[in-house]
């Protein structure tokens, strides 16, 4: 209920934040939205000596678009994406995913980058951003480096960030062709961690053949996973029941879930199959109905 005593710093520039991280290293935790860190501190599961609150760092706010990507500042809240319908034009999977996260209170405070840095395998953003081929930019004393989300997530609650590095933004590539997306999540109640989550986006070329596809899986492995073999089987073919079933079976095989109170490994794997099939079928209909962009 009450955290251990800690010191608190609220830097007002990125350099200052990185400097603090360099100084305190393992004794420090970065506070962005606080939706994972603060509950862990209150339960005394996390007891950092220093909390570095980055909410007053102006460089981390806001977002911008380039010709080929959307760059989200590290303080972008889930709700900022949830309510921005303009994103649907180029980035249909983002709002699909944002709307499924926890509850409005968490969405109002929690941040996309914070969720990635926390590296909970059941988190929604990691699976979504893997499917989109997104990367994060990390700033350390040596400067910036770009890390694909897949390389960022090393293990449960473990990232490839150095102790003195901080995520400054998330880069989401713009689809080249017509794209449609779907996010599905099974939870026992609103706000529960996912039993299984599936985020997928499909781009098709002029002939209707799949030109790019990303299938991200949440809560079925030590990190979020990308169902590479399922993606591969879809490439170059038009979406149809048979290939969708094939891909769904491959995605289920790619899942590596653990048995727990949310269900057995066999159950979760089967829900992956069902969700990938449903998701791809929904995407197929969206593409056919002209709901997709770039049409």
């Amino acid at each position: 209920m009450f955290p251990n005593a800690f010191d608190y710093a609220a830097p007002t520039s990125l350099d200052e934040a990185v400097d603090l991280l360099s100084r305190y290293g393992d004794d420090a935790k970065v506070l962005a939205g606080g939706q994972s860190l603060l509950p862990m501190m209150k339960l005394r599961l996390a007891a950092p000596a220093w909390v570095i609150d980055i909410n007053r760092v102006p460089e981390l706010d806001g977002r911008r678009e380039s010709d080929d990507a959307l760059i989200l500042g590290a303080l972008t809240r889930h709700s900022a994406i949830e309510w921005d319908r303009d994103l649907d034009a180029d980035y249909p999977l983002l709002r699909e995913t944002a709307a499924l996260i926890a509850d409005p209170l968490v969405r109002n405070r929690g941040t996309v980058a914070g969720s990635l840095a926390h590296a909970d395998p059941a988190a929604d953003w990691a699976a979504c951003l893997m499917a989109l081929g997104a990367s994060v930019t990390a700033r350390g004393p040596q400067g910036d480096r770009l890390i694909p989300v897949e390389d960022l997530l090393v293990d449960t609650l473990t990232t490839s960030l150095e102790l003195d590095e901080i995520i400054t933004g998330v880069t989401v590539p713009r689809p080249a062709g017509r794209a449609a997306a779907k996010s599905l999540k099974l939870e026992r109640k609103v706000g529960d961690f996912a039993v299984v989550g599936v985020s997928l986006q499909v781009e098709v070329g002029s002939g209707g053949a799949v030109s790019r596809v990303g299938i991200g899986l949440a809560a079925v492995g030590p990190t979020a996973l990308r169902a590479r073999e399922a993606e591969a089987v879809l490439m170059g073919r038009p979406l149809g029941p048979e290939v969708i079933r094939e891909a769904a079976a491959l995605a289920a095989a790619a899942a590596d879930p653990a048995s727990d109170r949310r269900g057995s490994a066999a159950y979760k794997r089967d829900v992956v199959r069902v969700f990938v099939e449903r998701g791809l079928t929904a995407v197929q209909h969206r593409l056919a109905d002209g709901q997709a962009l770039g049409a």
Binding site: L186, R188, Y267, V271
Partner: peptide
């Protein structure tokens, strides 16, 4: 009646 329990009966 968690979903997994119903699923197990179905399977």
């Amino acid at each position: 009646l968690f979903p997994w329990k119903v699923w197990e009966v179905l399977r």
